[in-house]
Amino acid sequence: MSLFEIIGGFFLVLGSIFLFLGGLGIFRMPDVYNRLQAGTKATTLGAMSVIFGVGIIQLENDWTWIVKAMVILIFIAFSNPISSHALARAMYKGKTYPFIKSKDKDMDAYKEFIDNQKMEEK
């Protein structure tokens, strides 16, 4: 095994573990918002790490791999938070309210804003 294979393999395994944790988070968390949290963060770093690892492994044969890998990586790093943000807002406007333990009104600052908006529409 060459040095590139060792470093790239490390990134591969690390990334796949984070992808697994993302799947586990999706499976275990109690409501949509917490699922989004676990899913977005873990899969973003996981996918970035796996793609970067593949680029590193191929670096000793062909440098074009890592350039294409960086394109995919940057695209995922930008698109993943945007889609999770769009989903979170859509879920809130679709009247799915977050799971809150203590039933404290201050814990949900966004509800105030939505209620004000509805009052203005009326």
Binding site: L12, G15, S16, L19, G22, G23, I26, V32, R35, L36, G39, T40, T43, T44, G46, A47, V50, I51, V54, I57, Q58, A69, I72, I76, N80, S83, S84, L87, A90, M91, G94, T96
Partner: peptide
């Protein structure tokens, strides 16, 4: 429906990294 879309998003990202690994 929201839970399914979140799961679909995660599936997409995992499949993309799987495709990159398979291309290697």
């Amino acid at each position: 429906a929201g839970d399914r879309v979140v799961a679909l998003d995660t599936l997409t990202v995992i499949i993309v990294s799987g495709l990159v690994l398979l291309s290697y």
